[in-house]
Amino acid sequence: MAEHATAQETLFALREQIARLEGKPLPALAAAEQADLAADPEGQKARNNQPRLPFGIPPMDTALEGGLPLDGITEIRSLLMGDAGAASGFALSLASHLKARQPGDAPVLWIGDVVSTQEAGIPYSVGLKQFGLSQRDVLYASPRKLDDALWLAETAVASGAVVATILEIRGNPRHFGLTESRRLGLRAKAAGRPLFLLRHAGEEEASSASFRFLVEPAPAARRHLPEGSELGGSIGHPVFRLTLEKSRIPAPLSLLLEWNPHDRQFSLGREAGEAFSFRNPPAHPGARLPASADRQDRAPALGTVVAFERAS
């Protein structure tokens, strides 16, 4: 009986290893593991081999299976270039959140895109300091070509010299496809360092990123007064409207996330009601189809669909 259990465990371990290599969980395995968990603390240990960065927010951590993976690519996407503030804010807050929880003084590498820098400005060190990243925490790179940027990202991730790498790109460049993203993903996995891919004004695209967030701006939280009340009309901590577009859970998760730069900590945005005020109706009223979770959607039809009257 004991022999049988050992063999079973070996089998599970091997299956898990294969699943990790492929980056996919096996549902049966996950269920079996849940069952094993109570009896076998070793399983827990095996699970923890994959480094994760928990947000400290239960729904988020559940959706991310314990937190943001620190050995892979996480994509952060915005719909419009005008949302660059929110998108780069979320990427930098992730870096700051991670930096606060890791020992050592390795910096964060920001690989900027030339056009995005012209469109949305350069990261401002004084503002970053207030955001939770001090001057020496950030290295800025401004490669001229995308090839250089990719080489730089690969080198940075592989060297293990930086805590996190933020690669900023604009749109969906042709030279950055699945092959390149897979290459970066493998490097990240080997070195155990995260790569945040910050895609401004980009479409959804197949990549080796394990999670993809869509970031949209949201009204900021109010400032807190010392006695505990809030100051009406003030602009306090930034809030991001996040949609977890790509993950292993079937339905996309959407929530408001508030970043507290002083504690370098995320919290759930509370004023969810204010987001859709009468001045700002939702862009897509009515039921929205869930975004495809595991793979790419089929290509949408060209042009807009207009309700013509029937000819006959």
């Binding site: 503030g85 949305a120 401002y124 004084v126 503002g127 207030q130």
Partner: peptide, 13 residues
């Protein structure tokens, strides 16, 4: 010089 008020995350040159 550390400003007391908030500074932006991205600054235009």
């Amino acid at each position: 010089f550390a400003p007391k008020s908030d500074r932006p995350l991205r600054l235009f040159r």
